[in-house]
Design a binder for these strands. Sequence first.
DNA 1: AACTATTTGTTCGTATGTATG
DNA 2: GCATACATACGAACAAATAGT
Lengths: 246, 246
Amino acid sequence: MPKFNPVKQPRVSDEIMGQLKKAILSGNYRAGEKLPSERELTDTFQASRVVVREAIRGLETAGFVTIRQGPRGGAYVQQLAFDRVYESFFDLFLAGRMSVAELIQLRQLLQPEVARMAAMNVTKVSAKQLKAALETETGRYRNHAEKVRSRMATDLVLAQMCGNRLYQAVAETLTRLTQEIIIAVKPEKVVFHDQREHDAIVKAVLDKDAPAAAAAMSRHLNSVGNGLVKLEEDFRHKLGVGAAEG
Amino acid sequence: MPKFNPVKQPRVSDEIMGQLKKAILSGNYRAGEKLPSERELTDTFQASRVVVREAIRGLETAGFVTIRQGPRGGAYVQQLAFDRVYESFFDLFLAGRMSVAELIQLRQLLQPEVARMAAMNVTKVSAKQLKAALETETGRYRNHAEKVRSRMATDLVLAQMCGNRLYQAVAETLTRLTQEIIIAVKPEKVVFHDQREHDAIVKAVLDKDAPAAAAAMSRHLNSVGNGLVKLEEDFRHKLGVGAAEG
DNA sequence: AACTATTTGTTCGTATGTATG
DNA sequence: GCATACATACGAACAAATAGT
């Protein structure tokens, strides 16, 4: 018997989305360029505007394009960022499929390694960035959210410095997740870390002392871990998303 | 001056999607239950069917619901799975925002720890699952894809056993990513690992010998790492997605 | 400052496909 | 086989945003 294929066809919008995605990935449309307008795509794909729109919106939520209105508007291809990774983890956390304790545990494995790698990759430029980040951590802030974000600035720079973009993606995601949790709870519940711990990490990295950087990061995470776990209940209550364990 | 808020309002479909998402997360709709039909939602949100549809489709791609046709059809709430995490990483990889070498490096950090934790959490049930997975690794297969998937069965069970769902999500994602890369390239290019390496890992885990499990996993990844890196070029060529470095 | 053209955003009406009973 | 209830798809229109004149 010849080899037949199942004929079940996917939704039209998914088919279109797949083709557009492939075109972008294979370089037919580069970052900054514009996809054809909805009307044009309606012609080329011989489909209605609605399904073309659905396809483009899918590309948008996947992070491949941004959509603008007006003349010169349309779907503009952009560099794929780590945002979608973050969003999926955040949803999983909201849905109770993971807890703060689990989050901290992964950070305790990953971040010391990130610090170690960063220490081995220090350059003039990145050293400057790291120092600048440390400065902002002790700077002024206008509200709780800004304070939280500023006080974790070095984490993001270290993630970028470590030289492995996958590490960076995960580390950045975990940092941002932690930030959002802290931001959401009542400020008076938050006990901020001792700034000297961040100082020690940065110093070790700038000294290119990889083991010391990892150790300092490890100590830091141990000291803040328990405090963060305690925020979870407050966080879930505030957002009304029920307890963990889904 | 009083504190005003920007009035820029999001798309109607995004607003609807947000409300539905919140309703699901706060437990108004539990897994298995059905969201109101498109028509009903049209009434309650006072919006057109198209935007309601867009919202529901958004929830579908986010993994919150599955959509079925026919009577008794509609949007059914489901447990949020790790699929979306995987998809976002896969897209990043396709877009050249990360390489196989970086993938392997993270696996080398994470998987030994997973094995260690699994060894400390062995139960009668999970031991049985792990043995069963090891069996399938040497079993029969009908094609390349099935062979690849079956030969990495223990990785997925270990990820599940480790007891941290965040570790599980990441480990599972990395394993699946590796699988898809191997599946995509020409079978004759693939050099499969020595099965005794998996045997050693499983044995250590079942013996509850955590350090040995971690060490065995570490050795295993070191031995397969280089072979996998070599597959990258072939993979990208085959899918026509251009070289790395985006 | 006002007008115009272009492109996305939204709506309505309608028709078709699909699966249950 | 038929009715039902639902998603899927199409086409034509109008609304809103925005860049250029």
